[in-house]
Computed example of a mutant assay.
Amino acid sequence: MKNKSWIVTLCAVFSGVSLAVVQNKVSPIMNILMETLNIPMNTAGLLSSIFAMVGILLAIPASSLISKIGVKKSGVLALCMTMVGTLIGVFTTNVTILIVSRLIEGTGVGIIAVLTPSLITMWFPSEKRGLPMGIWGSWMMIAQTIVFLLSGFLSEKWGWQSLWWLGLAFCLLSLVLFVLFVTEPEPEHNYMSKSDEKISTMQAIKSKSSLTLAVGALIFTFCSFSFVSWITLFWSNGTGWEIAYTQKMISLLYFIEIFYAVGIGYVLNKVKNRVNLAIFGYILYGIVGFLCFHTSSPALVMTLIFIYPLFDAMIPSVYWTVAPQTALKPAYAAIAIGTLNIGLNLGTLLSAPISGWFVENFGWVSIGYIFIVLGVIGSLITSRVKFNF
C-alpha cells in the first residue's frame, strides 16, 4: 500500500505539473506577446491570469464531480479539456479567441487542483501528509522552472506558439500515466471518507477556518503571480541583463524552490504547529518581495534568487497540508480543498492585471510596497486558522 500510495501521488503530481506548464507559459514571454499581438500590459496580464477564472468557478463543483464520477474519469476529463484549449490557442492570433482558449485550458487546472490534494488526503493520514503535500506544493515551481528555462530557446526558434506545443506534449504524457496508475484506495484504507454519510456542500462551506485559509491563499497567489508576471522585465531593465539570461535566472529560482518545497514538506511531518511556519513565513515573504522590486544590483538579485523561493514555497506547502483539517468533518475535506482553491485562483486572477496597472501608474516600486502590506495582512489572517479535527 505504501508504494502504491507514492506511485499514485507522483503520477497525479506530474499531471498537475503538466497543467501548470500550460498555465505558466504566458509569463516568460509576456514581452513577446505584447509586441506580437500589439496589446498593453494589463491585457497581457489578463492572458496570464484569466486562466484562474475557471479555477474559481470549478473549485467547489470539482469536489462533487470527483465524488460522482471518480478520480480517474475526472483526471482524464481535466487533461483532455486542457488539450482542447491548447489546440485552439496555438492556431490563433486573435486576442479574444486566445483568451477564450485560456478559459478552456483553465478547466483542467480547476479540476486537478482539487483532485491531487484530495488523492493525497485519501492515501495518507494527517500525520504523514506533510511530505506528499510538500511535493504537491512544488507543482507550480517545477512548471515555472521548465517554462522559464525553455521559453527563450523555444520562442526564438519557433515563436510563442512553441510554448503551447510544449504544454500539449506534457499533457499527453500525463494522460497516459494517469490512466495507467492513478486510482483511489480501497474504502478501508481511505483517510478522507470514513463513512457513507451524504455530503452537504452548503454545510461544508460554512467552515470559518476554511474560508480564512482561502483569504490567506488569495493574498499569497496575488503576490506570487505578480512576481512571476513582471520580475523578468524588472530585473532585465534594472540589471541590464538580456531577457533570455534573466529567464534562466528565474528558472534557477524555481528549480531551487522545488527542493525547498520538499524539505518543508519533510519538516511539516515533524512539527505539531504547522500554521506557525506560514505566519512567520508571510512576514519575511513580504520583506523579500519588497527587495526583489527595489534592487538593480546583480549581486543582490543573485542573493534573492536563493532567498525568495524559500518563502514562496513555505506558505502554499503549509496551506495544502492543513486545508483538509479546516473542514468541519473528515468527509468534507474535499470541499475544504476546493475552498482553498477558490482563494488561490482568485489571487491568481487578480494579480497580473492589478499589479500591471500599478506598475503603469506608479512604477515598479509599487509592487514592492504591495508585498510589504500583504505580507503583514497574510500573517495576521493565517494566525486565525483553526483545526476542526
Rank of each mutant, 00 (worst) to 15 (best):
I231L: 10
V322N: 02
Y260C: 06
T339M: 15
S49D: 03
I337T: 04
I32D: 12
S162D: 10
M81L: 15
A336S: 12
M302C: 08
I258F: 12
N3P: 03
Y282P: 01
C80G: 09
F306N: 06
V90F: 09
N237L: 14
V262E: 02
M133I: 07
L46Y: 10
N388W: 02
I287M: 11
F91M: 14
G137N: 05
F51P: 00
D196S: 13
P353H: 06
G159A: 13
V13N: 00
S226F: 07
L374W: 06
F225Y: 14
N276R: 12
T339R: 03
L154P: 04
Q144K: 08
S297L: 10
K157T: 15
Q23Y: 10
L177E: 07
E257H: 07
I99S: 07
I372D: 04
M41N: 12
V288I: 15
L79Y: 08
I342W: 01
V8G: 00
S48N: 15
S174D: 09
K2H: 11
I142M: 13
K270L: 14
I370W: 01
I307L: 14
I120S: 05
W364M: 05
K4D: 13
V376A: 13
P40C: 07
M202Y: 08
L177A: 04
A169D: 08
M133Y: 03
L172N: 06
S236R: 15
Y332H: 15
V275R: 13
A333I: 00
F225D: 01
N24I: 01
K248A: 13
E197Y: 08
K208A: 14
W364A: 05
I146T: 09
A333S: 15
M140Y: 14
V22G: 00
E257N: 10
L131V: 11
L344M: 13
N273T: 11
T9L: 10
T246P: 02
S151G: 11
V288R: 00
V17T: 09
L10I: 14
Q161M: 10
S174T: 13
V22L: 09
G108H: 11
K25H: 11
T326A: 07
G134R: 02
T348L: 14
P309G: 04
P330G: 06
W320C: 01
L168C: 11
L300C: 05
E105S: 07
E242C: 03
G75Y: 04
